[in-house]
Amino acid sequence: MSPRHPNELEDIEIKLLLEGIYLYYGFDFRDYAMASLKRRIWNIIHAENVHTVSGLQEKVLHDPACMERFLLSLSVNVTSMFRDPSFYIAFRDKAIPVLRTYPFIRIWHAGCSTGEEVYSLAILMFEEGLYHRCRIYATDMNEAVLRKAKAGIIPLDLMQEYTQFYLQAGGKSDFSEYYTAAYNGALIRSFLRENIVFSPHNLVTDASFNEFNVILCRNVLIYFNRSLQERVHKLLYESLRTFGILGLGKHETMKTTAYENHYEELDSDEKIYRRIA
């Protein structure tokens, strides 16, 4: 047999790996964006001390602990409090005036990872005098990151940087009022946590579970291919009330989706949209 392009075999192995994981564990990564998924898979291959995608397949299917690590590597996203301060400024300017007119505000933070951005939003809502009227549903497919999010403990050494982001994001108070130093970390104060519900939800396989006034889904869809993005946009659209607000990541766009005409832009730079139809 003549040697074929190295790419070809790798693509077949990855297809088999993802199919196997789906059939055996029910987690569906088959429509993830291939280029970034491939990089993550190779990082896992090196960490697991195997040499090929097929080698990883054997280990993942026969060793549930390896599957847990696989899941964690694919779902942990680099995050921070008040990441992209300009987003929070735009949210204060453009979304808050709309939300003030609602008696009760239901928020879905989809793909919340370890919770830093959820608590940032809670602080923002508190400073705008709206936190007592809102309930934040924060979801992620991975229960390990949810446990961490729920604990609400942030490494103390990161708080200096987060304080800078908080100020750049238009913070109105003293950032240290929102946490107490405990357990070698900064524990988010309980009054900020009481209106947050953390719960597992998989955007790929789970259905809509409520109707929301605000959905934040920032830098989550970039890991999906176009057909999966389209499916998840349908889910987000169906979970958003008319005139509800959708926040995407700074370089994500509605333009390539079928839902473009159902939204108007509240802030084109920060990708804050409002459902109009």
Partner: peptide, 12 residues
């Protein structure tokens, strides 16, 4: 990142 036909981004 480059995919066949389009660009993709990641925060990895």
């Amino acid at each position: 990142l480059v995919e066949p036909g389009y660009f993709a981004l990641s925060k990895d």
